[in-house]
Write a protein that binds this DNA or RNA. Structure first.
Lengths: 193, 193
DNA sequence: GTAAATTATTGACATTTGTCAATAAACCGC
DNA sequence: GCGGTTTATTGACAAATGTCAATAATTTAC
């Protein structure tokens, strides 16, 4: 692991656009760095998401909690990706979802205000962000497709194909509610192969 | 209905950014205009989506067809909105989904090449498109939420609240597979109130 | 306007998935 | 390493939803 917490963010940017070191440093200066404990809550449901996060290592989980205490995982954000409770962060309105760091994590974060300022002032960043949004949007479309066209077993198999490492590293409880099924159903799927 | 087929697109743009008439005309010139018949297929599954559409009137449906002939509606695109088989259009790879105009429709369309050229050359357009992407992404996140946290009845009630006109104007068969449930289940939900 | 086609409804039943409960296994923090 | 907590598995059953089939209602194309 590189000692510089901005190393991966710089890679993310420079992979997407030509940019010199000085510019990169200006860009990164807007992000703050922190480490989190396992299961640390970064955003409570009902609060307005102040930050978007970039994950250096570990994993963030964006999830909802219904009145019966049932949890549903909306998104999982792993190394080298941006993530937040997007509707809340984007619209600056109270979040239906909470965010927790499901593993001890090393993350960067930037406020909504600074993020928007970067979009307005940093040449090329809006373009890179737009491309990144397109990718995230496509991923969410594929998730919708899997939810409306596949049963539990097919969705699990798909996840095994596309994200086998997620399945290995996360408790199957989390995988189950990411798939929108109960823990017991997932357990049965796994045993019945 | 305005006689100029670009009227609504101009409104879409000028509502989102300051732009003069001459620029608007340059912008719109990249779009072609056509009308479609009810149930006309605009894109076959397996083809690469060449166009993104702007709907003046009518409704486009982006849907998938599984091996058993079961259809699933991924998105519905109504008046004043952009839409296409997004993953295919964006990545220029074969589409899992087909597009049909579910009602006789009046639409504009632009090729992937021209669309990207506009992003590169038309000042402010990438910004407007980015904002529009954020909205679409948020809508898709909300759809994912509803699919993983709600049962069929709750999803139907949500759709009644958020898009009552859609329910009125489209056959309930379409509504059912948009919700990811069978036509029969939807029919029972409606009768059991 | 009418015939043909499509869509909607309803019943009976099958299947999938969820819920609750009990136990076993794994894991975590110290 | 150990004790306590969380997570996973399994069974029994309930609830939700899907499938198939028959019929009714609606809509469309001409």
């Amino acid at each position: 692991m590189p000692s510089n917490p901005y190393h991966q963010l710089k890679q993310f940017i420079s992979a997407a656009m030509p940019v010199d070191d000085e510019q990169l440093n200006i860009f990164c200066k807007k992000f703050r760095h922190k480490t989190t404990k396992r299961n640390e809550i970064l955003l409570q449901a009902g609060d307005i998401a102040p930050y978007i996060y970039f994950v250096n290592s570990g994993c963030l989980r964006v999830f909802m909690l219904d009145v019966n205490g049932k949890e549903s995982t909306r998104f999982l954000v792993t190394e080298g990706r941006f993530g937040t409770a997007f509707p809340s962060f984007n619209l600056q309105e109270p979040s239906l979802a909470a965010i927790q760091s499901i593993e001890p994590s090393d993350i960067l974060y930037i406020s909504h205000h600074d993020f928007n300022a970067l979009l307005d002032t940093f040449p090329g960043w809006e373009h890179v962000y737009r491309i990144s949004l397109e990718k995230d949007y496509i991923a969410s479309i594929k998730r919708i497709e899997s939810l409306i066209t596949m049963d539990a077993k097919q969705r699990y198999q798909l996840l095994m194909e596309t994200s086998p490492t997620l399945i290995q590293r996360l408790p199957s409880k989390i995988i189950a509610d990411y798939l929108g099924i109960s823990q017991e159903t997932l357990s049965r799927l796994k045993s019945k192969r």
